[in-house]
Design a protein around this nucleic acid. Structure first.
Lengths: 239, 239
DNA sequence: TCTGAAATGTAAAATAAATGTCATTATTAG
DNA sequence: CTAATAATGACATTTATTTTACATTTCAGA
């Protein structure tokens, strides 16, 4: 299975949403005011579990996360989120004692951290920096269509910013189709180009892989829009 | 199993010619049969000198070349040909010992190679791939007439900018007619070129396809302007 | 210019072929 | 060895092609 990493969520120049995960009421309030006064939308959650739910529902562009939480540790939230949305910036909020080791944070996948007590200005600066970093990072080498981006170098596919797991064969077939957008590709061509010369599997194999690609990427796999079949010949990808 | 004899060969509409340069009689025969069974025309030569002559005379679209030849080494043939026709694909056939170094082959200008003993399927695949690489038509290249555009790579027909759905056979017949504009095409010719050798349907089949083409593309299908009948012979496309 | 045989047009029915899909089996990587 | 991936086979479904049957047109020769 191909591993994760990420691609920039296109910056919504209108309004960024920040998910704050913090159990201390006083800090909650302070953070909410801080970010809102700077034009961010803020969603506050008190524990890890509800944070993950809120996260899925509201699709924030960054997360400010207290490492100390009830019900589910900040670490788990961090890991969970990063797995699915590798590029989404996470800024950790922690007491000095929590993080003696920066390495731990990197392992968690956090982008930056601020130790309590923190200066509002500093936190704001770091969130902004993290947002900037991800929006700017590597635009190249990725084909995009619909809500999907296919990063050839990383062998990564994202749908609505979420990582879609693909096997190597699936990815290569996808890649070839995408790189030859609009052109009708015969099964023979797919077989020689994607599968290589040595092993020639049966024609059904190609269909099965197309099936998988459709299931993973088409909104309605039964009525494929992007991965079209060209009856009597093969397939064709259209943006 | 992918037995291409069952499938219509979308890539080989206009017969490709392969020049095989090989001194071993047994291999000669095998190769000739292999390629002919897949719809290629084959010219076989046993040595480098006559190969070059045959090459000039018959203008093949690819060369399958044994590196070990009498009178003139395959290397020289390769170099010579590549000098004059840099884009013409050359697939080298060699005993394993001949090729300890792939670099040498690249220097020779070969496009690909297969080591003996080789699998017919593999050789075929490599030849096809090489042909495709050099032939690959640009997406967007289209023949136009009246308000109609025929895009070969996309296998797409537009009439007044609107997509006209066509089946593979219809499209291939259309393509052949358009590519042979002004010329009278007999039913037999259509059958061999579009339908292929294997299956010879009879009488009304061709007519029915022309009918469909007319219905889809002629302004007044009953009075065809572009897809004319040549009574007693066949059809003719005029722009 | 008639007339009938041959050729072609045409739509619909019959047949064939290609594709989607899933369950199963093989293969491969870890 | 196990889990993940890939390939195969079987089957239902969809789509395309061929055939059939008959209508219409063409054209040569009277």
């Amino acid at each position: 299975m191909l591993s994760s990493s990420l691609q920039p969520l296109p910056e919504t120049n209108s309004m960024e949403k920040i998910l704050v995960v913090e159990d201390d009421r006083a800090v909650q309030k302070a953070l909410k005011r801080l970010f809102e006064s700077e034009g961010f939308m803020v969603d506050v959650q008190a524990d890890g579990k509800s944070a993950l739910e809120a996260f899925r529902a509201s699709a924030p562009s960054a997360i400010v996360l207290d490492l100390r939480l009830p019900s589910m540790s900040g670490r788990d939230v961090c890991r969970e989120v990063k797995q699915q949305f590798p590029t989404l910036p996470i800024i950790i909020l922690s007491a000095t004692t929590d993080v003696t080791d920066k390495v731990l944070l990197l392992e968690l996948g956090a982008d930056d951290y601020v130790t309590k007590p923190f200066s509002p200005r500093e936190l704001l600066a770091r969130v902004r920096a993290a947002l900037r970093r991800t929006t700017r990072s590597e635009v190249g080498e990725a084909a995009t269509f619909d809500g999907i981006s296919v990063n050839f170098a990383k062998m990564e596919v994202l749908r609505e910013g979420r990582l879609i797991e693909m096997t190597a064969r699936e990815f290569n077939a996808l890649k070839f189709l995408v790189q030859n957008a609009e052109r009708v590709i015969s099964r023979d061509e797919l077989l020689t180009e994607v599968w290589g010369y040595q092993n020639y599997p049966s024609t059904r194999t190609v269909d099965n892989h197309i099936l998988k690609i459709r299931q993973k990427l088409e909104k309605d796999p039964a009525n494929p829009v992007h991965f079209r079949t060209v009856h009597g010949v093969g397939y064709k990808f259209v943006r």
